[in-house]
Nucleic acid binder design. Structure first.
Lengths: 240, 240
DNA sequence: CGATCCGTTGAAGAGAATCAATTTGCGTGG
DNA sequence: CCACGCAAATTGATTCTCTTCAACGGATCG
């Protein structure tokens, strides 16, 4: 809950700069402006809500470590995870005109994050076109990933969905430098994998065991290793 | 394929202004700048692709009439529709840094649309913060609707998914002034409804017949009427 | 050492896919 | 105006995936 020492507080914002420069460099002045943002580093435990649906004043956050997810609830209490966030990802990005959070975001593990008041970010986006564009990029990528998720849920069977989820997480953890040869620590319970893939935890369990029996994945405790590097092969289940 | 007369070409851009002002008014100068954009009105037949995945130079378009959809394909040829667009919706919005279209967009009916070169839009977004923010809004809403779609696909049964799709379309057509008492012309075939809901056309048919037998919907030809109306989650932001 | 959460396994049932006709609606051309 | 041809809608029978319900083992933690 307590921010780190002052001298450390610039490091996380440097990471935000790196993130926002993924696709296009920022003017030096914009970089400085980001580094000068009021920011707070927090450590938060597993299973805590970061942003609530309908919340108006939520901050912009960047995950420094750990996992989080966004989800929606149905009236009968069923939960569907609509996106998983890994270290480096930015949460709560939105333009100034849509103050309402559309979905809930919650942690999937203990996390570290930087928190920035949305007013400060909004002011920056208002005056600096390159920053606005970089944040806009985040929204677009978010929408693109959501579309891939839709395709997976709509047209793949349990095996394909779980595989696709593992592949997406592996790829994103690799980008974040969190993997060792396609091996990553997956803090999700099978229940949560089910919430992400639209399956029950029971069926997730059977699917994971089947994938392991097929030699496509290896599991040791919470560490999962992807042994098949062929995304297209995942969709071909005629051999099963 | 030929644009309309010059004197008509401002009317569709006025509609674009209205769209971009849904959530916040634009400065008069920004409105004028939009009206001055180079635009071309086109009529395009059903089943034509408007934007191809991987395409770099696609234009920004606003639907003036008709329906379109965005979809992804699996390697085995299965199709999953990830979003439906109705009159007024803006397609192909993206920031300057991500030139690649992530998914394919195709018409679901004969359509009319305005086409604007993305370079012209990008230049405007670069210099005018309010326009950038309005376009950004479109991306965020797009992501929000995709998330609702994910929840539907992951956690609802066939009945719930078809109902949710009809409710979303009804709500959006109502906003576009295309409904008469929750009744709308639905040009989607049952095959296409299946592609949107992750079902087969056979099961869509059975589900529609069941909904009709239950008295929840009424169908006459292509006209569908929602008889039991609950507020669709997807449109929550539209009424904000 | 019990409490609890998570993972694993079994058996039975529901919902959707699949396969296969058949019918309806509609534009087209004779 | 009617016959033809085609795409879409409808129906039936069967198969299979996934869910549901239930129980049990193993780890972790006060």
């Amino acid at each position: 809950m307590i921010g780190d020492l002052m001298m450390d507080s610039n490091a996380p914002l440097a990471r935000l700069v790196r993130r926002l420069e993924r696709y296009a460099p920022l003017p030096a002045a914009d970089r400085q402006a980001i580094l000068a943002l009021p920011a707070q580093v927090e450590r938060i435990g597993r299973g805590r809500r970061l942003i609530d649906e309908g919340q108006q004043d939520h901050a912009v956050m960047q995950l420094l470590s750990g996992y989080a997810c966004r989800y929606g609830l149905l009236s009968d209490g069923q939960r569907q995870i609509t996106g998983v966030f890994v270290a480096g990802d930015v949460l709560g990005v939105r333009s100034g005109d849509l103050p309402i959070a559309a979905q809930t975001v919650s942690t999937l593990s203990d996390v570290e994050l930087v928190k920035i008041p949305h007013t400060a970010i909004a002011a920056l986006a208002e005056s600096r076109a390159a920053i606005a564009r970089a944040l806009w990029n985040e929204s677009i990528l978010d929408a693109n990933m959501a579309c891939d998720w839709i395709v997976s849920l709509g047209r793949r069977d349990a095996r394909g969905r779980v595989l696709a989820l593992l592949q997406e997480l592996t790829a994103r953890c690799r980008d974040a430098g969190l993997t060792i040869r396609d091996s990553l620590i997956l803090p999700l319970t099978q229940e949560e994998i089910g919430d992400a893939t639209g399956l029950t935890s029971v069926h997730v369990n059977r699917t994971l065991m089947a994938l392991q029996a097929e030699g496509l994945i290896d599991r040791v405790g919470r560490r999962v290793t992807l042994l098949a590097n062929r995304p297209p092969a995942a969709a071909r289940m005629l051999s099963a």
